[in-house]
C-alpha cells in the first residue's frame, strides 16, 4: 500500500515494517507539562502516540490540545476522537484544527457511554457513530468536502484509524464483519482492544485475512500489561468487552505481590512475540495505562527497537 499522507506511522507500515504506537492519557487538570513528560518517556520507542479523548467518559484535558503539545515536541500524534460529546459540526471543526497543526493520524471512536464517567447526568450526542466518523474524515481528505458538500480549499491529510474489539459480542464472525465495515468506510489502520485471549484473537484474524480485510488495512494488536493481580481481575470483571482468560489470572496468582508487575511485563512481551507471527498483524498498540515508563521495556523486549527512521 502506498502512503497517502505525511503520517510517519503510515510510512513505516507501508514500508512493510511493524508499526508501534502507544497512548498518553491526559491529566484531569490543566497541567500540560504532564503530557509532555509522558511523551518524553516513550517518544523514541514508538512511531506515533495516541491521545485519548475523555476516556471512560471522565473529563480530561482535551485530546486536540494534547496532540498539539506532542506535535510541537516532534512526536507524531494520533488524535483520538469519540462521537459521544460532539456533533458533526464540532468534529469536522476539530479535524480541520488538528490538520492545521500538522496532525496526520486519527482514531475514530464512538466512545464509552457517559454512564461510566464522572458526569453520568450529562446529555450525550452520538450524532454520528465511529463508522460514520471514518466516512467523514475520508470524505474530507479524499473529496475535499465537508459532510454538507462544501468544498474546502485545503484538505486535511489524515491517516484514518479505527478500533475494533474482537472479543465483544455477539461473536467473533460479526466482529470481523464489523472490521470489514470500518475498512469499507475508509479505515486504514486498526488498533484492537487489549488482547489477552490469543486463540480468540487468532480466530478473528483468520477471518480478517480470509476475507481480505488484512490486506486493506494495517491491523495493530492491542497490548496492555498487567500491573498487578488486582488489575487483571478488574479488567476481567469490570471492563466491558474485555476477555481475560483464567490461566493469565492464575499465572499472576502464582507470583508474590511485589513480583506481579514484572510478571505482567513478561507476559505482555511473550504475547507480543507470539502475536508478531500471526498473519495479518502489522504492528502493536501498547496501552500501558498510567504506566508509560514501561513502554520502552516492552518495545525492546518484543524486539521492536530501534524504531525505523523514515
Amino acid at each position: 500500500m502506498e502512503p497517502k499522507t505525511p503520517s510517519r506511522l503510515e510510512k513505516i507500515m507501508a514500508a512493510g515494517q511493524l508499526g508501534v504506537t502507544s497512548e498518553v492519557g491526559p491529566p484531569r487538570g490543566a497541567d500540560g507539562a504532564e503530557i509532555e513528560h509522558k511523551g518524553h518517556l516513550i517518544k523514541d520507542y514508538v512511531d506515533a502516540v495516541n491521545v485519548t479523548d475523555n476516556q471512560t467518559s471522565v473529563v480530561r484535558l482535551c485530546s486536540l490540545a494534547s496532540c498539539i503539545r506532542l506535535k510541537q515536541m516532534g512526536i507524531d500524534p494520533v488524535l483520538q476522537m469519540t462521537t459521544r460529546d460532539r456533533n458533526r459540526i464540532a468534529m469536522q471543526s476539530d479535524i480541520l484544527g488538528a490538520a492545521s497543526f500538522g496532525i496526520h493520524n486519527m482514531l475514530c471512536l464512538t466512545g464509552d457511554h457517559q454512564t461510566f464517567g464522572d458526569h453520568p447526568m450529562s446529555a450525550n450526542v452520538f450524532d454520528l457513530d465511529s463508522v460514520q466518523l471514518i466516512q467523514t474524515v475520508k470524505m474530507m481528505r479524499d473529496e475535499g468536502k465537508l459532510l454538507s458538500g462544501f468544498e474546502m480549499k485545503v484538505r486535511p491529510q489524515i491517516f484514518i484509524g479505527a478500533a475494533e474489539n474482537p472479543f465483544a459480542g455477539p461473536n467473533v464472525e460479526l466482529r470481523a464483519l464489523r472490521l470489514g465495515k470500518k475498512i469499507a468506510a475508509g479505515a486504514e489502520f486498526i488498533q484492537t482492544q487489549c488482547i489477552y485471549n490469543i486463540p480468540k484473537f487468532k480466530e478473528w484474524m483468520k477471518i480478517a485475512v480470509d476475507k481480505g480485510y488484512a490486506e486493506k488495512a494495517y491491523i495493530m494488536a492491542g497490548i496492555t500489561p498487567f500491573k498487578s493481580l488486582g488489575m487483571a481481575r478488574y479488567m476481567k470483571t469490570k471492563v466491558p468487552g474485555m476477555d481475560v482468560p483464567d490461566n493469565l489470572i492464575d499465572r499472576l496468582k502464582g507470583v508474590p505481590k511485589e513480583k506481579q508487575a514484572d510478571e505482567g511485563i513478561k507476559m505482555a512481551i511473550e504475547m507480543m512475540q507470539e502475536l508478531k507471527e500471526v498473519p495479518g498483524v502489522r504492528g502493536f498498540h501498547i496501552m500501558a495505562i498510567e504506566w508509560e515508563e514501561k513502554v520502552p521495556e516492552l518495545v525492546k523486549g518484543a524486539g521492536l527497537y530501534p524504531r525505523p527512521q523514515v
Binding site: R84, D112, H113, T115, F126, A168, G169, P170, K181, G241
Partner: peptide
C-alpha cells in the same frame, strides 16, 4: 442502542448485554 448507533454493535456489547448495564439488552445484538 444506548449510543443510537447506526453501525453497531459497539465494542462494549457483551453476552447480549449493553455496556451500560447487565439489565439492558444490546439493541444491536
Amino acid at each position: 442502542c444506548s449510543k443510537r448507533m447506526l453501525n453497531g454493535p459497539c465494542g462494549g456489547s457483551e453476552a447480549g448485554k449493553c455496556e451500560i448495564s447487565k439489565d439492558t439488552p444490546c439493541g444491536w445484538h
